[in-house]
């Protein structure tokens, strides 16, 4: 790690990346979002008659912004997200890094885990992915690891729940 990034990042990166399928899932989400935006723009240019005021400008700006959105949502965001998102399970804690522009690192010790949930959304099922949510007594202290392979997620959840049972002190 070069000294430049050391000063910028407050804490270290967790070690592991998500499943590569997550990129495809995010691209799919981006495409769905783009379709919605596209429909809105088409509806706007068909339904809003405008030859006066700021409307002609908007008629030009809306498609340009929409194209920009599509490029970012499909071509940029999934890859940036994949590079940013990381997770790790160490001997005594669960550690994640999530976010896109604002980064959030979350660390929870295994001894304070209350419940571990595994969820599979509709899109996730298409790509064989699952998310883990690790809950603690604090409403703000929830760790979420999105988009892992199903078998990995299930194994990790099982392992965490078992270890939490063993080492739990006062879980609050």
């Amino acid at each position: 790690m070069d000294p430049m990034t050391r000063t910028l990042s407050p804490v270290r990166k967790p070690a592991w990346s998500l499943s590569r399928s997550a990129i495809w899932l995010w691209i799919t989400q981006g495409i769905i979002g783009s379709l919605v935006v596209g429909l809105a723009v088409v509806a706007f240019s068909l339904l809003v008659p405008g030859d006066e005021g700021p409307l002609p400008l908007l008629r030009w700006a809306a498609p340009v912004l929409a194209v920009l959105y599509v490029v970012v949502a499909v071509g940029v965001r999934p890859f940036v997200r994949y590079r940013v998102h990381r997770w790790e399970i160490t001997g005594d804690s669960v550690y994640t890094l999530t976010g896109w522009l604002t980064r959030t690192w979350t660390l929870v010790p295994v001894a304070r885990i209350q419940t571990v949930d595994v969820t599979r959304g509709v899109l996730q099922q298409l790509f064989g992915l699952a998310s883990i949510a690790v809950l603690t007594a604090s409403s703000q202290g929830t760790v979420r690891v999105p988009h892992l392979e199903v078998d990995v997620a299930e194994r990790v959840a099982e392992d965490l729940a078992r270890r939490a049972e063993q080492v739990r002190d006062e879980a609050t």
């Binding site: 603690t136 604090s138 703000q140 202290g141 609050t172």
Partner: peptide, 24 residues
């Protein structure tokens, strides 16, 4: 019961970060 460290783009430029102590 856990720590959350948050850093926005501008905070990253300024060398700052927000730390939240999660408490039950």
């Amino acid at each position: 019961v856990g720590w959350t460290v948050r850093q926005s783009f501008l905070q990253r430029r300024a060398g700052l970060a927000t730390v939240v102590a999660c408490v039950g």
